[in-house]
Simulated assay, not measured.
Amino acid sequence: MPDLTPHRHALRLSRPAGIRSIRLGDTKVSYVPDGDVRLRPRQLLRDSTDEVWAAHPEYLDAAGHLVGSVGGLLVEHGDRALLIDAGFGPQAHEAPEGAVAAIHGGALPRGLAELGRRPEDVEAVAFTHLHSDHLGWACHPAPGGDRLVFAHADHLIAEPEWDRRDLLEAQGMAEQVAALAPCVRTITDGQEVFPGVRVRFTPGHTVGHAEYVITGGGRRLIAFGDAVHSPIQIDHPDWSSDFDHDRVRTAGHRHRLVAELAEPDTIGFGVHFADVVFGHVRHDGNGPAWRPVDA
Results as ranks from 00 to 15, higher is better:
Pro237Gly: 01
Thr250Ile: 01
Arg256Phe: 07
Asp242Ser: 10
Glu169Leu: 09
Tyr212Ser: 08
Gly190His: 12
Gly78His: 02
Gly68Arg: 07
Leu13Arg: 10
Thr188Tyr: 03
Ser14Asn: 13
Val228Trp: 05
Asp246Lys: 04
Tyr59Lys: 03
Val258Arg: 13
Pro264Phe: 00
Gly218Ala: 01
Thr5Phe: 07
Pro6His: 03
His152Asn: 06
Ser14Asp: 13
Leu11Ile: 04
Ala62Ile: 06
Arg42Gln: 06
Leu135Ser: 09
Leu60Phe: 02
Val248His: 11
His93Ser: 15
Lys28Ser: 13
His65Asp: 13
Leu180Lys: 06
Ala55Ser: 12
Met1Pro: 11
Val193Cys: 09
Ala138Phe: 04
Ala181Met: 11
Thr5Pro: 01
Ala101Asn: 08
Asp3Arg: 09
His209Gln: 08
Ala126Phe: 11
Gly98Met: 05
Gly145Phe: 14
Glu58Gln: 09
Arg20Leu: 11
Phe150Thr: 04
Ala251Trp: 05
Asp133Lys: 12
Tyr31Glu: 00
Ala107Ser: 14
Val258Ile: 12
Ala210Leu: 02
His236Pro: 05
Met173Thr: 03
Ala113Gly: 15
Gly71Ile: 00
Asp121Ile: 02
Thr128Val: 14
Gln176Thr: 08
Pro288His: 07
Gly225Lys: 12
Glu175Trp: 14
Cys139Asp: 10
His155Ser: 14
Glu76Ile: 08
His131Asp: 13
Leu66Tyr: 00
Gly136Met: 07
Arg15Cys: 05
Glu120Gly: 14
Val213Phe: 08
His65Arg: 09
Ala289Gln: 15
Arg42Asp: 05
Tyr212Leu: 02
Arg220Ala: 08
Val67Cys: 00
Val100Ser: 07
Phe224Asp: 07
Ala227Phe: 03
Ile103Ser: 10
Gln171Gly: 15
Ala124Asp: 12
Thr27Trp: 03
